[in-house]
Design a protein around this nucleic acid. Structure first.
Lengths: 206, 206
DNA sequence: AGTATGTTGCACATCATTGTGCAACTGCAC
DNA sequence: GTGCAGTTGCACAATGATGTGCAACATACT
């Protein structure tokens, strides 16, 4: 409490937040954006960024921590509750994850590249495997019909989300519709009849 | 014919080919692979690469030319012939493109990044728009049922192919099955009932 | 006013990468 | 063997990015 007497966060904290937000956006556009690019985009000098984060990796790591947390929470929100229908699980998770789309996106975009962040990928796998479990159950119960094994289907779902984010980015898809469309399309890819998928999603997003 | 008296191509040509092949693989793994990495992976010294290609961009550009050509040919092979059914078009194209998967993959992987290769993306858009046309027709005729507009669906299809390539890479999907599974899954995502999709694909890949 | 915290604008060393120049070497063809 | 195309192994300059040090400065809190 020594640094915050008023209710307003100090401008240092504001700057830190701005840097993180801007870094997310910049690294989303170009995973190799330099510290200088990020700093300038945040309206700050490069040296200032190093005042908040000891090095590039620390900055990215902080970003990834937030992303993992956000996605894990969203996914949990989708699968929690006494829902036994795998299709409903997928629909709810998709709608929930869609709301933290950017953060989800940067997670994988960066995990591909940096060698040092390999651990991040591991930290994220629990969520991944939870998703695979739902898909596997759906395939076994016949709710889903797909020639793909559950893990491959999970890959497909992941990439479909990226595709739809890009579609929204490029103005090909209306942002309000996007979440529901995404849910329907993921279900369709899993082999759920579109009519049933549409009805289910409509019911969930009242 | 001054340089090639025997039937064997000179080892210079062999090296050039090796460099291109290896560069494809290396850049697939890491779009920022250095010229040194590529050279060493090709069993050659960096200086030699510069003997074949004046600079990094020329190397990548050559790679992209091949990729564009291969994909365009594959896609054309899929949509040619007197096929009026959009579903069959998608199935045939998918099966055909799947055979040049790596080249297709690097194309987009690199087009995202390099500023100089923006023109490549433009050169590729014809194929892209041909795909969109097929999807649009399918949606209008009711063969496809999707809440997505045709261009967004095209994005989704593209990314799904990447996902399935990765799935094969990671051993989650048997390579022999992969092409057919991909075709079925793309059709399913477009809203074609899985039963119909499976039958169609089975019929095409006899 | 005085103080602490944070920001700025340099300067600097370090490092990796790119592209080039050149001399020496290796095979293969004639 | 002589010559030639291509490869190699340096050395080199140029560039851009990273991370650090330090003095000057601005702002808010006391």
């Amino acid at each position: 409490m020594s640094a915050m007497t008023t209710g307003t966060t100090s401008r240092a904290d504001v700057n830190r937040r701005r840097i993180l937000d801007v870094a997310l956006a910049e690294l989303l556009r170009d995973p190799d954006a330099s510290m200088d690019q990020i700093a300038r985009a945040a309206g700050v000098v490069r040296r200032t960024v190093y005042g908040h984060f000891p090095n590039r990796e620390a900055l990215i790591s902080t970003l990834l921590d937030g992303a993992v947390e956000a996605v894990a929470a969203a996914h949990a929100e989708g699968t929690e509750g006494a829902t036994e229908d795998p299709a409903e699980c997928v629909a709810r998770s998709t709608l929930a994850v869609w709301r933290v789309a950017d953060r989800y996106r940067i997670l994988v975009g960066l995990a591909q590249r940096s060698v040092t962040v390999q651990g991040i990928r591991d930290r994220f796998t629990p969520v991944r495997e939870a998703a695979v479990q739902v898909l596997r159950r759906g395939l076994e119960e016949g709710v889903f019909a797909s020639p793909l094994p559950a893990p491959a289907l999970a890959y497909v779902h992941e990439q479909m989300l990226f595709a739809l984010m890009e579609a929204v980015n490029d103005g090909l898809l209306a942002p309000e519709e996007a979440g529901r469309s995404a849910a329907v399309t993921l279900l369709a890819a899993a082999g759920v009849p579109v009519a049933r998928a549409t009805a289910l999603v409509a019911e969930l997003s009242d």
